[in-house]
Amino acid sequence: MKAPSPDVEAFFDPATNTVSYIVIDSRTRHCAVIDSVLDYEPNAARTGYESAQRLVDRIRERELTVDWLLETHAHADHLSAAPWLQSRLGGQLAIGEHIKTVQSVFGEIFNAGPEFARDGSQFDRLFADGAEYRIGDIPARALHTPGHTPACMSHLIGDALFVGDTLFMPDYGTARCDFPGGDARTLYRSIQTIFTLPDETRMFLCHDYLPAGRTSYHWQTTVGEQRRRNIHVREGISEEEFVTRRQARDAELGMPRLILPAVQVNMRAGHLPPEESNGTCYLKIPLNVF
């Protein structure tokens, strides 16, 4: 039986090269929002909602009901706007169950203290590998695809797969694996699992960084195209070859520009750290850790 095909609308945030999605069951007008962005100006430590407001406006324009606010992982390159969206649109906020590992690791790095829960309770739902859910009448399944982080989940919604940072466009390759809890060998195996899906499965990516030689941004491909053409992990590239190349590439990369604010917020499901006695929220900067 042919998988149902949701309507997918993409919203590109040029400040972080992030693509957020509204995934829609057109018949019931129910939807999910995937990987939303909270605007953040690092020089002033100021947050804003212009990117997230675009999602709100479009959902209201189409008179959609939000079932889910999905995070593919605890992002290191942008802050999540999921709680702000939830307060305006409803829906359940969800992430993979291994966010607990991420919270444990980064809770220590940021010395978050005992008041920071490391059990994933900031989210409404923690998906296990293979967990099934629905967006309207369209069946969906969460797939644990670790390697970039321990908590990475891909979401197969009808004939559309949302892979977060696991894969980029074929001419850019795959996610880095040098964050705490990342592992190149694990990423390779996760991608091989993705490659068992039908070639025609539409694949939607969380970022595009415009590699040399390309002049326009792209964030949609297919499983078959990735399997045949991805420069890091296409057919014929062995696990050992991939691991060697990925580790060498990661050793050359600097940390993402927003990793320190992003992880502190995203490990809290997009909530800011608690206000201190003067009514202000503060983010920490751990010296000489990364």
Rank of each mutant, 00 (worst) to 15 (best):
I259H: 12
N230D: 11
L260G: 05
R246A: 14
L260F: 06
H232N: 04
E235I: 00
R249G: 04
T244K: 10
L260K: 10
D250C: 13
E241L: 06
G236N: 07
E241C: 01
P256W: 00
R234K: 15
E235T: 12
H232W: 10
S238V: 01
N230V: 12
L260P: 02
L258E: 05
L253S: 12
G254V: 12
R234A: 08
I259G: 07
L253M: 14
G236L: 06
H232P: 00
Q247K: 07
R228E: 13
R257H: 13
N230C: 09
L260E: 12
G254H: 05
R228P: 03
L253D: 10
M255P: 13
V243F: 10
H232S: 11
H232C: 09
A248K: 13
R249C: 05
R227Y: 02
Q247H: 06
P256I: 04
S238D: 05
Q226W: 08
R246I: 07
F242Q: 02
L258G: 03
L258T: 11
G236F: 08
R228F: 01
T244R: 15
E241P: 02
G254E: 14
L253P: 08
V243C: 13
R229S: 15
R245E: 12
V233N: 04
Q226V: 01
R249M: 11
R257N: 06
I231M: 11
R234F: 01
I231N: 03
R227T: 01
L253K: 14
E239H: 02
Q226C: 11
D250T: 10
N230R: 11
Q226K: 02
M255D: 13
F242R: 02
A251F: 00
P261R: 02
I231V: 15
V233R: 00
S238W: 01
R246C: 10
E235D: 15
Q226A: 09
A251W: 04
R234S: 08
G254Y: 14
E252C: 07
E252Y: 04
N230S: 12
R245N: 07
E252S: 10
R234P: 00
R249E: 09
R227A: 05
R245V: 05
H232Y: 06
E239P: 00
G254C: 13
L258R: 05
E241G: 11
Q247R: 09
D250Y: 06
P261Y: 04
A251L: 03
G236A: 13
H232D: 13
P256A: 04
L253A: 13
E252R: 15
L258Q: 08
P261Q: 05
A251G: 06
R245G: 09
L260V: 08
F242I: 03
R257V: 07
L253E: 15
I237M: 09
G254A: 14
R246H: 06
I237Y: 01
R228Y: 03
T244E: 09
I231H: 03
R234D: 05
I237C: 07
L253Y: 13
I259A: 14
R228K: 10
F242S: 05
R229F: 08
L258N: 14
Q247P: 03
D250W: 04
D250I: 06
G254D: 15
E240N: 10
R245W: 09
R245M: 11
E252W: 01
L260M: 09
D250N: 11
I259T: 13
V233L: 10
F242V: 11
R249S: 07
I237E: 06
R229M: 12
Q247W: 02
R227N: 01
